[in-house]
Amino acid sequence: MLEELDLDERDPNDINGHVKVGFEDVLAEPAGAHSIACVWKASHVCFTCGKNCCYNILTTLCGIFIALYWGCEFAMITFSMVWCITPFLRLFSITMGCLQKYFGTCITCCLAPICETCGLAFTRITVSKT
């Protein structure tokens, strides 16, 4: 079942806040360098219409296909995570836990007595300055 779409607020999580571009964000005339008012107004209309028309044409031609591609891409990522990567990581974690216990036991049995003996031998050494 399709969830209800909010056709007014299409970016509720502000994912694309960085591309909210208006006329004022691109073109600005500083004080003392103003064009004729009718040119400024016509520029605003041309910019806004051009941006909106181009965006609508591109989304009409490509939007559905690109959305289908991204839907499939995220489906493949989810499939990989659920069926391949997460079980492998769990297997790896179990295997490494066993190897960690094995290695720790070997170190404790074989290397620890040698280190302890060397430590006791070197505690008898004294250094004096002459």
Rank of each mutant, 00 (worst) to 15 (best):
K51I: 11
F74P: 10
T108A: 09
L99F: 04
C115A: 13
C115I: 08
L99C: 08
T86A: 01
E73W: 12
C54D: 11
F65V: 15
I66K: 04
I57V: 15
R90A: 11
G71V: 13
T60M: 08
C84Y: 06
G50V: 02
A112E: 05
N52K: 15
C84K: 04
L68H: 15
L61I: 08
Y102N: 05
A67N: 06
T60D: 13
L91P: 09
C109K: 07
T105W: 08
L91I: 12
K51R: 08
I85L: 14
W70P: 09
E116W: 00
C118W: 06
K101H: 04
G119Q: 04
L68F: 07
S80D: 09
Q100Y: 00
A75H: 04
V82N: 05
Y102P: 02
M81Y: 08
C98D: 12
I85F: 06
T60V: 08
C84T: 11
Y55V: 14
F92I: 08
I107A: 12
Y69I: 14
I107T: 02
T95Q: 09
T105Q: 03
L91E: 09
G104S: 07
W70H: 14
I107Q: 07
F92D: 07
C118V: 06
L58D: 15
I57T: 08
G71Y: 13
P87W: 01
C53N: 08
F92E: 06
G104R: 00
T105E: 02
G97E: 00
A75E: 07
R90W: 05
L58W: 06
I64N: 13
L68A: 14
G63H: 06
L111V: 11
I77Y: 03
I94F: 01
L111M: 10
Y55R: 13
I77S: 11
C110N: 03
I85D: 07
Y55Q: 15
C49D: 12
M81E: 13
G104M: 10
Y55C: 15
F74S: 12
A112H: 10
A112S: 08
C72D: 08
C54F: 11
F74G: 10
C62Q: 02
G119I: 00
I107K: 06
Y102M: 04
T117D: 01
L91W: 15
L58P: 05
C109L: 03
G50P: 03
C72P: 02
A67K: 01
L99D: 00
K51G: 01
L58H: 03
S80W: 06
G71T: 14
A75Q: 15
T108S: 05
T108I: 10
L91V: 10
L91A: 05
L91K: 05
Q100N: 05
T78L: 06
C72H: 10
M81V: 11
C110T: 06
I77L: 15
T60R: 07
V82T: 11
G104I: 01
L58Q: 12
V82Y: 09
C118H: 10
C49R: 10
I64S: 13
L61M: 04
